[in-house]
Design a protein around this nucleic acid. Structure first.
Lengths: 160, 160
DNA sequence: CAGCTTTACTTGCTTGGGAAAGTTAAACGG
DNA sequence: CCGTTTAACTTTCCCAAGCAAGTAAAGCTG
């Protein structure tokens, strides 16, 4: 939705800003996904799951915690983890202390995979975002992002 | 991927900025889609198609032009337009001057639909983005978005 | 302690998108 | 002017995601 979208009520400045933001919203995730797919045969979402696990104590988290961290529904997470399980990068066991919980852990192979995939990802984010912005702009982007996400949260009911 | 993602090589400031941006990247499109779906039973993408048509001469564009405007593959567009056609909001005819092109046009019903859907969409973008930013921040966001999208374009081969 | 409720997932169904093969129409080369 | 390319779609196949229904373990209630 690059340069179309809601003209009617916006003045020129807002319209151009919205067009630029809409392009960013579409292209940046696509760029990240595409690099991850190409270099590591993972979706960005799957990488996020494995990265979160690699950062946790014992490389283990409850599915519900992981769902929060990865900003996804339990259903989406369940399938993604199932995929990762077939590749032997993650395994699931019922929590011994409460059988309703499921614990997901990275395997050794999974740890390797994350370590292999991370540098390329960090590089790309650096190139696309931080290297193209001045330190001042980076701070501005930080503030702006926080403001908009707060507004979304305030708007109500639909962060997963 | 709210607050996980690539820690390793980023300092704290970059990490927090990236976390905030990643959240924005996930939530803002979801918020827009969700409003559009709820109020008008359209995806944001379908709305974009119809909006682009409503803005064109005779409410008509070639499929390939429309694909560029809506930043999508021809395949995705073809299906989306097929869906809109079954609801009688859009119709397709071969271009009489060159049978390889297909012309997509809004029907009268489609025009009405766009007019009905637009105000709510504009409102939401206003509330989530422009009302939460100062005029200075709006200009900053404009510049920042342009810089990042240029970097993506420069990075090469994968805007559709 | 038997039954209802709640919590934490998982699974079946349907839908949308990407990749690649198929189709039809112009263009070009000999 | 006939055969091959190329362009512009369209369609088929497969996978991922949302929704809603299903399941199993805890907890609570009378």
């Amino acid at each position: 939705m690059t340069d179309l979208s809601p003209a009617p009520a916006f003045d020129d400045e807002k319209l151009e800003t919205w067009a630029a933001l809409a392009t960013l919203l579409e292209w940046l995730p696509a760029a990240l996904d595409s690099q991850m797919q190409r270099d590591s045969d993972l979706t960005h979402f799957e990488y996020g799951i494995m990265f979160a696990l690699s950062d946790a104590a014992d490389c283990t988290l409850r599915m519900s915690t992981l769902a929060t961290y990865s900003n996804s529904s339990l259903s989406r997470l369940s399938r993604a983890v199932a995929r990762l399980e077939t590749k032997n990068w993650v395994c699931r066991v019922p929590d011994p202390s409460d059988g309703r919980y499921t614990l997901a852990s990275l395997t050794d192979g999974g740890r390797e995979k994350v370590e292999q995939a991370t540098p390329g990802h960090v590089d790309l984010v650096s190139r696309l975002v931080f290297d193209t912005l001045t330190p001042t702009q980076t701070r501005q982007l930080h503030n702006i992002s926080l403001r908009i996400t707060s507004a979304i949260r305030a708007e109500g009911g639909w962060q997963p």
